[in-house]
Design a protein around this nucleic acid. Structure first.
Length: 593
DNA sequence: GCCGTTTTCGGCCCGACTGTTTTCAGTCG
């Protein structure tokens, strides 16, 4: 039996976290490891590439790490009946508000329970009133400072959690702060850390590490950053400030001798570090941001590590590029010396997704730069080829013959442009391909007649409407489009827009199989607001031997510089040069198209 | 409750900071 409403992974993760909190309230000590298990399961569910309920239907919950026999039984009950007796039993005596308050940063399960129980708080307004009447400060274990901290956290929470920053935006803020840090002459080395160093597509906090001759001075210098609106913390080792827009920035300071450990520790990701430390423990080593203890528990056995290379080498591992540090197989690969040699920006030799201003009366936005300018820019970037992939001519405004005429006109123009590049610009070995970005209509048809398709060297297809179709319809829609013989690239495949719209619901197994069968290339769209295909799916595709392309989807010439963000996604998805088609030379490529 | 490159039993990452405390609890990353 199917339950009427499908539970999303996010909802399941939240439920698992609530259960973890319930165990903590029941007896934090006794259920210590259940708490960890449930939290780990929640993390794992949140990061799964498939919807859990689909995996359950396919009896593949075993594929999700952290879900053992017991949790699978509870989930099975939830998917069948809509609830779990065990979970309900655990949470039945806990007011809903306890779980609500826990969403406020700085309020954990204990604090939340105490506020709700002792002050009888039923909503956020009542919490505000309790604060204004100074009732929180009077609670045992609380004080005026705690009350103030909670008050501030509540206000920031109510402003609505800031959306996660896009990668280029966070990078830009980071580079300004690095400039500020450079003014402190005690600082010998500095790095960005955390998700920014790992080049995650969206960034929450911005983190830095420095090696300093005087860490305390450097931390103070950091807190004096002119754009800081508030100092959140300042200790001997770390400090945190807040910038406008609730952007949290952390600095970790240490000395040069142990900088490798510091850098490694705070680069994370969390799951990578946890797995690494568990592995180290089995080898009789304890890892921390200070170094490696060769006798766990004995502080004197500390070996300081100055570089990350040395850190990993101490564990008989190869240095792992930060982009891979997510505990998705990199530790095992490193131990076996089988890490991929990741693709780099310099490997890129072309861009297949560029919108020029050549007007073919498109269905969506036209580019705003001329073909000639875009070609010149491509040559500056040392590319050997680009493809102009404007949107298809709009279907409601033209009949088939008009569409064909527009496309013939475009083909002529590009033929002449290629001639002119050799003849007038005196450039050899550069080619402009004639392509088109074609809407996949809701029924899977393409709005370009065969004669129009024949004017093209190849076509990209992508979804621009009916994003909410059910999985099966959406999948069939895409599969049909990919069957068109001119289609070579599936562009921004999930159609997500970061912070704006989730990706469409596709059966990736079927999409991957079709790509493999038809030699379709999946696009990694380098537009910072898209970064689509997402890194996790890129990794899945690479494991299946599917080829990808990295494109900028340029509508204005400067966007051609966005290629690096697409490369960061490819790297996070374990792509080597050979996985990415537009690292091929023009000569190699022409054989394929 | 999960999991396996010393284990199907016996482990489970490590530390900073804050506030309310005189040695620790709570929260976070």
């Amino acid at each position: 039996m199917k339950t009427s409403k499908k539970m999303t992974n996010l909802q399941i993760a939240e439920l698992l976290r609530d259960v973890a909190a319930a165990y903590q309230l029941k007896d934090a000590n006794k259920y210590k490891f259940q708490v960890i298990a449930y939290q780990r399961a929640a993390d794992s569910v949140e990061h799964a590439t498939s919807e859990l309920q689909d995996l359950w239907e396919e009896k593949k919950l075993d594929d999700v790490p952290g879900l053992g026999k017991s949790l699978q039984e509870h989930l099975d009950e939830i998917f069948r009946t809509g609830k779990s007796k065990h979970f309900e039993e655990l949470t039945k005596d806990i007011p809903k508000m306890v779980f609500e308050l826990m969403k406020i940063p700085g309020i954990g399960v204990k604090t939340s329970m105490k506020l709700v129980k002792e002050l009888k708080i039923k909503n956020l307004d009542e919490l505000k009133r309790a604060i204004s009447e100074s009732k929180v400060a009077k609670l045992e274990g609380f004080g005026v400072d705690s009350q103030e901290r909670i008050s501030k956290a509540l206000k920031e929470y109510e402003k609505k959690a800031p959306a996660r920053m896009l990668l280029p935006y966070a990078s830009q803020i980071a580079s300004k702060i690095l400039e500020w840090l450079k003014e402190d002459k005690n600082i010998e080395i500095m790095n960005t850390l955390g998700s920014l160093r790992r080049q995650v597509s969206t960034i929450g906090d911005i983190d830095f590490a420095v090696a300093s001759k005087d860490p305390n001075y450097s931390l103070t210098h950091f807190t004096k950053y002119p754009k800081a609106t508030r100092i959140l913390e300042k200790g001997d080792r770390t400090a945190s400030i807040l910038l406008a827009g609730n952007i949290r920035v952390d600095l970790m300071a240490g000395k040069k001798e142990s900088y490798g450990s510091l850098l490694q520790h705070f680069t994370g990701g969390k799951n990578h570090n946890v797995a690494l430390r568990e592995y180290a423990l089995k080898k009789g080593l304890s890892l921390s941001d200070y170094g490696i203890y060769t006798k766990p528990g004995d502080k004197k056995s500390l070996k300081e590590i100055s570089t990350e290379e040395e850190f990993y080498k101490f564990l008989n591992m190869d240095w792992i590029p930060p982009e891979l540090r997510e505990n998705s197989g990199e530790i095992e690969a490193s131990l076996e010396h089988k890490l991929p040699k990741l693709v780099e920006l310099q490997d890129i030799k072309g861009d297949f997704h560029i919108h020029s201003d050549f007007d073919i009366e498109t269905s969506h936005d036209l580019g705003s730069s001329s073909m000639v300018d875009l070609v010149k820019k491509a040559i500056d970037l040392n590319y050997e080829y680009i493809a102009f992939s404007e949107h298809n001519p709009s279907k409601n405004k033209h009949n088939e013959n008009e569409i064909i005429d527009l496309l013939k006109k475009k083909k002529d123009t590009i033929d002449k442009l290629n001639y002119s590049i050799v003849k007038d610009m005196k450039i050899r070995g550069f080619k402009v391909f004639n392509s088109l970005e074609i809407d996949i209509l809701p029924d899977g048809k393409l709005p370009v007649p065969p004669e129009g398709m024949n004017t093209l060297d190849f076509a990209l297809v992508s979804i621009h409407s009916s994003f909410g179709q059910p999985r099966e319809d959406m999948t069939n829609r895409v599969l049909e489009a990919l069957d068109n013989p001119k289609v070579k690239i599936f562009a921004h495949p999930t159609a997500r827009k970061l912070n704006e719209r989730n990706g469409v619901d596709l059966d990736w197994k079927k999409i991957f199989a079709k790509c493999k069968e038809k030699d379709i290339w999946l696009e990694i769209n380098a537009d910072p607001a898209r970064l689509d295909l997402p890194d996790i799916l890129v990794h899945e595709a690479v494991k299946k031997g599917i080829k990808l392309v990295i494109d900028t989807d340029t509508h204005y010439i400067d966007s051609m510089d966005n290629m690096k963000w697409g490369v960061s996604v490819a790297r996070r998805g374990w792509c080597e040069k050979s996985d990415i088609i537009n690292t091929r030379s023009l000569k190699d490529l022409e054989v394929m198209i």
